[in-house]
Design a protein around this nucleic acid. Structure first.
Lengths: 159, 159
DNA sequence: TGGGATACCATGGGTATTTATGGGCGTCAA
DNA sequence: TTGACGCCCATAAATACCCATGGTATCCCA
């Protein structure tokens, strides 16, 4: 396995701890990390988390802007500044800070969604709503793609 | 063999395990995988499963959009998020999650249908219905084609 | 060409391990 | 001292692995 995929429903216990699903942990461990990077998404009430690839992605995002440019400085502050390193306990759990929980409106349940290089942490109800929306868009996209070429790839992906 | 072809009737045992037909397993193994990727189809009560090619198809769909674009993020969540990696046990079986079984309405029997780069997992009755429908469409299409031009291949393949 | 032996496969079930989760206790810092 | 945090242990459920079985197709050799 090499990417974060699938969706998991997790609980936060009375101490605020949340298990990271074993398959996700395996990817983190592959990076040689004992912690998970986590930051609030810029535009949605959701957290983004992951390992080395998440960090690399953030680096490359910032590097799109010229050094010392205002945009770059702001982006760097917004992204690097908001990243927290959540240490994994011996059982593979992390603690979400109050700030992170507030941003995502998470109380005692969370939905973790693999998105390739990282995973997202949602409040379950908000995730459901968001997913319905996203699925509608995928459906539209599929139709669009399907109508483009006549015979090619009739398999589609059936997504 | 390099494509998923043919149709197999499989049973789920009391533990929910289902054998992947040996020819399908051979293709998965050729990818160096010890698991099968599986996700619910977007618009039909059927699962889509496969190996590296299935995953590559999904990747390419996502890569049509610029990194960090909203469309891409949503697509990634909807597609990667719905994928499950089903580990193959030493006997070549997988376990379908409750979510997958629910989507395809599968209880203790399933029909696996090769479709080239991947295979589909149906509840047997639904597959029969779907197949009948598909055949009708093919017949209609043939007739259409046949009436257009010459007489070639009116015999068809009897499918 | 027939018939037995053989290999492969789908299936079944027992058992060991992993996982998610819960709680207790020590430690360090404010 | 009090609270936050890290470690340890406990446990039930889910999972993975091991071995067993019966059926079928294949192969081999007489």
């Amino acid at each position: 396995m090499e990417r974060f995929v699938s969706t998991y429903a997790m609980r936060l216990d009375s101490k605020g701890r949340m298990s990271i699903p074993a398959p996700f942990r395996a990817l983190i461990a592959r990076d040689g990390l004992e912690h998970v990077y986590c930051h609030p998404a810029l535009d949605l009430p959701v957290l983004q988390a992951g390992g080395a690839r998440l960090m690399a992605g953030i680096d490359s995002l910032i590097e799109r802007y010229p050094p010392y440019s205002e945009a770059r400085e702001e982006l760097a502050a917004a992204l690097y500044g908001s990243i927290e390193t959540l240490r994994l306990d011996p059982e593979g759990r992390v603690m979400l800070s109050e700030g992170l929980k507030t941003h995502a409106q998470i109380r005692d349940e969370a939905t973790l969604v693999g998105v390739g290089d990282s995973f997202r942490i949602w409040e379950p109800n908000r995730f459901r709503a968001h997913l319905a929306e996203a699925r509608a868009k995928v459906r539209a996209l599929k139709q669009e793609i399907g109508s483009q070429g006549a015979t090619r790839d009739s398999r589609g992906d059936g997504a």
